[in-house]
Computed example of a mutant assay.
Amino acid sequence: MKPVLAAGAVIVDDAGRILMVKRGHDPERGCWSVPGGHVEIGETTAEAAAREVLEETGLRVEIGAELWCATIDYPGDRSYEIHDFAATIVGGDLRPGDDADDARWMTAADLASVPLAAGLHDHLRIAGLVPESF
């Protein structure tokens, strides 16, 4: 089966905190992740990342470089090809929306104490966004 194409955004504030959302739906309901979701027909992955951030957090962003692409396999032969981009906030007010149960800024210590989406911890570490000891 062909993986579902998805995109997200990694947003870091001036204090080094990462914007995270608590997933409100499967896969991985209840886990924390960067804002993101399915790419719609006719969208680029970057456009999808910006749209998903707005829907899940109320924030408008400018999308930057792609940080990583990961394929995550889930039970039941479901697979997602996820493209995550760096992003910068250009407007809006932070509030959880769409399929996010919560949205908040998290430090590396915060991230170490919550359940994270599959593989996210490694990608954040490799990208230098959390310490090696994370």
Rank of each mutant, 00 (worst) to 15 (best):
A50W: 00
H83T: 00
A87D: 08
P35T: 06
L94A: 11
V130S: 07
W105R: 13
G91N: 03
P96M: 10
G64T: 12
D102P: 02
L124G: 12
G92L: 01
C69H: 03
V53N: 05
A109D: 15
I89Y: 08
I41G: 09
G97E: 07
A49I: 04
G58V: 04
G119I: 00
W105C: 12
R51E: 10
D26N: 13
W105Q: 12
Y74L: 10
D98G: 13
A103R: 07
S113I: 07
Y80V: 14
L116N: 02
M20H: 01
D102S: 09
A100I: 02
E81G: 10
G128R: 01
G16E: 06
W105E: 14
P131N: 08
P115N: 04
W105F: 08
D26K: 04
E81Q: 13
R23W: 04
V39L: 00
T57H: 04
L54D: 11
T44A: 00
A109R: 11
H121S: 15
G37E: 09
L67R: 14
D101R: 15
R95H: 14
Y74G: 14
I41E: 15
D93G: 03
G97S: 06
A127M: 06
G37V: 07
D84F: 00
L120R: 03
L124P: 12
A65K: 12
E132D: 15
P27H: 03
V130L: 00
F85P: 08
G91H: 11
L94H: 01
A127F: 05
A65E: 14
A49H: 01
C31G: 06
R125I: 02
R104L: 08
I18R: 02
S33Y: 12
S113W: 03
P75V: 07
H83K: 04
A100C: 01
S133A: 15
G76E: 00
H123L: 13
V90H: 02
R78V: 14
T71K: 04
